[in-house]
Design a protein around this nucleic acid. Structure first.
Lengths: 349, 349
DNA sequence: AATTTTTACCCAAACGTTTGCGTAAACATT
DNA sequence: AATGTTTACGCAAACGTTTGGGTAAAAATT
């Protein structure tokens, strides 16, 4: 079905049909004609061809009004299965849909060298993009040349020109460490990423402000996955037993770490406290349940959509960095440390 | 940048540029000219306009060769965060990419009434679609009218005209139940969906073939989420204590159920065995680790892509239903039932 | 009744691309 | 030298749409 065909069915010219479709209710056509056209459109299930429309509109309106009513969501492939991102995208989609926008996903920006992907990105026409996951500089410049409206959503503080929807992960980390300290812990390990990681800085600052001992061995640089958390904790616990608490940069890591701890015969929370960040669903299904910092992931998605759409519709950009509140969720994985060192140096073993 | 501009920069006509782009290396242009054109294209970062190209190609080649090099992936919203689908899509994407295809995601078909979504679906030009999640009849007819090449990937046996990539969930269920029976269990509950669910039928048939007692109370119709699994198990265990094993229709459900069991003071696997289906990552991070039926989720995605792309490229359809092998993964959540009834009727309490 | 205004519609050009057809030049064959 | 063949390229039409610029007929104003 084409505009032309609709036109001939209705016995009018294509232009009339076009005007009716794009300016319904205007005086462009008589009542009768307009009704007839809509009826035919309904009967035939006609939907205007996007390619043709775009082609024309882009030139006529110079990208001003070429409404796609779609926003893009750029996501690192590695993160696809991270519950954090599922939650954020859920909020994003919900809010977008409520405003008549659809979301187009563009995955795996680490494959940017792949020309197929480049082309696909180039071709998915969206009016703005939500950026999830930490972009490297190459990615940032690519984005800037390709999109005008970009909003970053996530926990990383990317000091960039993009608007950001975040939680204060720095403060969240300090909160987590402080909480462990309050419980009486002094030997607190860090499991997570180090480079450019604001959570790592939060950990460091908390440790120094609380005047706790800092030890390189207790800082482990890993990717944020359960697998890595498991391996890191296993290694850590086999080499040293003076650690009484693990601060993990996210829940996935924490869950992996808990498994390793239990396997090495370490009771949680009696002998080892573990805390994570995010509050993903799985936290509630581990034994014990994982104490964590709740990040309002879905709200982050919602805010991202709201602001993006606002920028799209008003055309105005008020640069901003939105910080959503986090909060500590006390569950079962943290407690006071054992009164004496877990394993008196030589006594056991 | 447009073809025309490239052409004038190169001092040739648009047609020459077009031919060079679409038939590189052919004798359409002289060596010099061709090189020059490519160089200019590289310098300017020109990418052909998708709209214009589609518009033209669709007519010229009559949907025969209108290459998008893209496949669609339609996904039920409710399942977006289900690890099962993350895994399948990961495989799908990997394989697609290896063949130069990109994947476009089209979410939430239960919102089909939403005209925005309908339009979005209509407009995402793909050469075939992978369908994940169980489609209702409305969805099926919508798909059939909109797409020629559709492959369903998942555990449900949708007796339909689509090609299917599945695991034999019926047999998988029987395997799970048989395994529990082998361990000595006789009172085995089912937690999962009932209507049209092949896993439910597998459970039923296994029970009857093994001549185990069937009891309505032990069959609980729930959605496949951890939340529902938790609630169902909590309710079940509070009302009856003769159940010694839980067959859960997927791991999420099983994980929820395990939590409820532990909270009600039921030790796993000593007093209660739990088995799931899927083998999602989380299975390895529960206590005890969850025994389950491994479904090759990533392979399912890979096969889906392979077959879809084959159909796209050859234009031929060999109707097929591919069954991938599953296997039982013995972990810690299943054991022989307690020799006597868990809780002798009145004795305890 | 003659005029202006409004209504209701059509024509044609343009968006960026692809391709059938045409053709001028270069080369090869007599 | 004249013909045929190949090479290298341009012309123009078409894809489905939108819109400025019409215009003929109807309605309103004199």
């Amino acid at each position: 079905m084409t505009l032309k065909e609709i036109a001939s069915l209705a016995g009018v010219s294509p232009s009339t049909v076009s005007r009716v479709i794009n300016h319904p209710g205007s005086k462009a056509a008589s009542r009768e004609v307009e009704n007839k056209i809509w009826q035919i459109i309904r009967e035939t299930g006609y939907i205007p061809d996007a390619s043709a429309r775009n082609l024309k509109l882009r030139s006529v309106l110079a990208q001003n009004q070429a409404r796609q009513k779609a926003i893009g969501c750029i996501l690192a492939r590695t993160h696809t299965s991270d519950p954090f991102f599922s939650k954020v995208t859920r909020g994003l989609e919900r809010e977008a849909l409520r405003n008549g926008y659809t979301v187009k996903y563009i995955f795996s920006y680490e494959d940017l060298r792949n020309p197929d992907i480049q082309e696909a990105i180039q071709q998915t026409k969206v009016e703005g993009v939500a950026l999830l996951g930490r972009p490297d500089s190459k990615m940032r410049s690519f984005l800037k040349t390709n999109y005008k409206k970009i909003i970053y959503a996530g926990l990383n503080n990317i000091d960039s020109e993009f608007d950001q929807i975040t939680c204060n992960a720095y403060l969240a980390s300090k909160t987590a460490v402080s909480y462990l300290a309050e419980l009486g812990h002094t030997h607190i390990a860090y499991l997570g990423e180090r480079k450019n990681e604001i959570r790592y800085r939060g950990y460091l600052d908390a440790i120094s402000q609380l005047a706790l001992p800092l030890n390189r061995e207790r800082i482990i640089d890993i990717h944020l996955s359960a697998e890595d958390g498991y391996r890191a904790a296993a290694k850590l616990l086999s080499s040293t037993r003076d650690v009484t608490a693990l601060f993990c940069a996210n829940d996935l890591t924490a869950i992996g770490a808990m498994k390793a701890a239990k396997e090495s015969g370490c009771r949680i929370p009696e002998e080892l406290s573990v805390i994570g960040i995010d509050d993903i669903e799985t936290c509630q299904y581990t034994t014990p349940m994982l104490t964590t910092i709740h990040i309002p992931m879905e709200d982050m998605g919602i805010m991202t959509a709201k602001i993006l759409i606002d920028r799209i519709e008003t055309g105005k950009r008020i640069p901003m960095k939105v910080e959503l509140p986090f909060r500590l969720i006390r569950r079962g994985s943290c407690a006071a440390p054992p009164s004496k060192p877990n394993h008196p140096p030589q006594a056991m073993e």
